[in-house]
Simulated assay, not measured.
Amino acid sequence: MFNTIPTVDFSSFVISSQKIIDLNTAAITKALEAQQIAAKNLLSLSQARAKAAMEIKDVDGFSAFVTEQSEIVKSSIEEVTDSTQVAAEDAKSYFEEIQAILIENQEIAAKSASVIKPIAKKAV
């Protein structure tokens, strides 16, 4: 029964799996590093704004603080827009690379299927 199982070289599938693992590791690492930088920046900004709020002494100081806050909000929106665009480009690149690996794997499988030969039956 098992004598007719074709021989297949699975090494190409292992290589493809490793490529996907490496790509996933790189993508996750990059995303986590970006999140860490964003968190540090937000922490610094929050501390600076809290300090600025505590230094308000009069109406002019309050007016200046509110003006600065509106500028910070505008800048933050621009940063979020830019980082979202970068993330979208990274995601597109990631999926293109995954697709290329899968297509390559499919082509290898198709070539392997065309040359598969059953294992010869052993004489009993």
Rank of each mutant, 00 (worst) to 15 (best):
residue 56 I to C: 05
residue 1 M to E: 14
residue 71 E to A: 15
residue 23 L to I: 12
residue 52 A to D: 08
residue 112 S to T: 13
residue 80 V to W: 01
residue 43 L to V: 05
residue 86 V to I: 07
residue 107 E to R: 14
residue 60 D to R: 10
residue 56 I to Q: 01
residue 61 G to M: 01
residue 90 D to G: 02
residue 40 K to P: 01
residue 98 I to R: 00
residue 72 I to G: 03
residue 55 E to C: 08
residue 102 L to E: 11
residue 42 L to A: 03
residue 53 A to D: 14
residue 17 S to K: 08
residue 7 T to E: 15
residue 99 Q to K: 11
residue 33 E to L: 03
residue 31 A to E: 15
residue 103 I to P: 01
residue 73 V to D: 09
residue 107 E to T: 08
residue 91 A to Q: 09
residue 15 I to R: 12
residue 116 I to S: 15
residue 100 A to F: 02
residue 11 S to C: 05
residue 15 I to P: 00
residue 55 E to F: 01
residue 32 L to S: 02
residue 48 A to E: 13
residue 24 N to E: 11
residue 42 L to Q: 08
residue 68 E to G: 03
residue 29 T to E: 11
residue 39 A to S: 08
residue 79 E to W: 07
residue 81 T to F: 02
residue 104 E to G: 12
residue 64 A to L: 07
residue 29 T to Q: 11
residue 94 Y to I: 12
residue 24 N to A: 07
residue 19 K to M: 02
residue 122 K to N: 05
residue 31 A to C: 14
residue 66 V to I: 13
residue 33 E to Q: 10
residue 104 E to W: 13
residue 105 N to H: 14
residue 15 I to S: 06
residue 85 Q to D: 12
residue 39 A to H: 06
residue 87 A to W: 01
residue 103 I to F: 10
residue 111 K to C: 04
residue 69 Q to S: 12
residue 110 A to E: 09
residue 98 I to P: 00
residue 84 T to E: 05
residue 90 D to C: 06
residue 95 F to T: 07
residue 104 E to T: 08
residue 59 V to C: 02
residue 8 V to Y: 05
residue 94 Y to M: 10
residue 23 L to Y: 06
residue 107 E to H: 09
residue 69 Q to M: 06
residue 99 Q to T: 11
residue 57 K to E: 12
residue 118 P to E: 03
